[in-house]
């Protein structure tokens, strides 16, 4: 058993090393397929990053009446934080609001003069709320209207910003489904191309398979070396693609950063290297082995 296994392994390696035309063709296609798979992984990462930055740019504020006590505001903040959809709640005091207002309008003398005329701080304290998903803001606003502490709420600015937020939610959903479709389609095409290439290389070996059968080789003794060859192609392609993507992502990372809202491809690649390697190994070896198994089946029948 062990001898047979060793012989199958050696035979598979010899097939890979000596049958250069079919190994070369399979390796070339596998490198392309794994590059496509890796790029699809990047696409998913870039899309998630963009969606996250879009969602982070959105928040709603609920303004608290001057009459509200510090305990009431703290209680409202705690209640908001307990909602699972809420990611973060930040308290902005009247003083901080004024500081920000002055900073934002420091060039506008009319506004500053008006503030002086008013003589006191006209701004309200507020709670700035960020949700995990922009589509959840209507529910959070509804909560603020119906909570027993609604009496301390002066205004929720969601209703002014609703159109922008809903457009953003649609944009996010659009990006998500487009990326999913592109991944599915490109992945399917890549797998199909790899499968057919391996089928063709085995088709070109059909005479060899016939000879092996005629000299009394068992099906596993025939199939084994092809499977080992497929595995070697998958592993080699993984290493080639990983080595190629280091300089490529380093070069493209800087160029794309400005277009992709700060998404750094190289950092993403190195941070997820383990996952990418696992994905490439799984796709490369899985495709190599599976397509060899399926393709060789028909030549083993007689």
């Amino acid at each position: 058993m062990l001898i047979a296994f060793q012989r199958i392994m050696r035979s598979g390696w010899e097939k890979f090393a000596r049958d250069k035309s079919s190994s070369g063709a399979a390796l070339f296609i596998m490198v392309i397929v794994l590059s496509v798979v890796t790029m699809l992984f990047f696409l998913q990462g870039a899309a998630s990053f963009m969606i996250q930055s879009l969602q982070e740019s959105v928040d709603i504020s609920t303004y608290v009446k001057d009459t509200a006590s510090a305990e009431e505001v703290a209680q409202l903040k705690a209640e908001l934080e307990s909602i699972p959809e809420v990611r973060e709640v930040r308290y902005v005091s009247k003083e901080q609001a004024l500081e920000r207002f002055v900073e934002a309008h420091k060039q506008d003398e009319v506004v500053l003069e008006s503030l002086e005329i008013v003589g006191q701080n006209p701004l309200l304290a507020s709670l700035s709320i960020k949700a995990f998903d922009a589509a959840r803001y209507p529910e959070i606003s509804a909560f603020l209207q119906n909570t027993p502490l609604a009496s301390i709420v002066s205004n929720v600015d969601y209703f002014d910003r609703a159109p922008v937020i809903s457009r953003l939610s649609r944009l996010v959903a659009g990006i998500q489904s487009s990326v999913f479709l592109v991944t599915l389609l490109a992945g399917f095409i890549a797998v199909l191309v790899a499968f057919n290439t391996i089928r063709l290389t085995i088709y070109s070996s059909r005479d060899e398979i016939e000879i092996m059968r005629l000299v009394g080789a068992s099906n596993w003794f025939i199939r084994g070396p092809f499977i080992i060859q497929g595995m070697i192609v998958g592993v080699s392609a993984t290493f080639i693609v990983t080595l190629l993507f280091f300089p490529l992502t380093l070069f493209l990372g800087l160029k794309l950063q400005t277009f992709a809202s700060g998404f750094n491809l190289f950092q993403y690649f190195t941070a997820n290297l383990l996952w990418i390697l696992l994905l490439q190994f799984a796709v490369g070896i899985g495709l190599g082995v599976l397509s060899s198994l399926i393709a060789i089946r028909r030549y083993l029948k007689v």
Binding site: A4, R7, D19, E210, I211, L214, V215, G216, A217, F221
Partner: peptide, 27 residues
């Protein structure tokens, strides 16, 4: 044992390996 007009040798194995293959499959 079978001998064919077109030899039917395994092209990526040497003469020695082609002959040895039969014994290998027999273990």
């Amino acid at each position: 044992g079978v001998v064919f007009q077109d030899y039917k040798l395994l092209p990526h194995k040497t003469a020695y390996e082609n002959i040895a293959y039969v014994m290998e499959v027999m273990g």
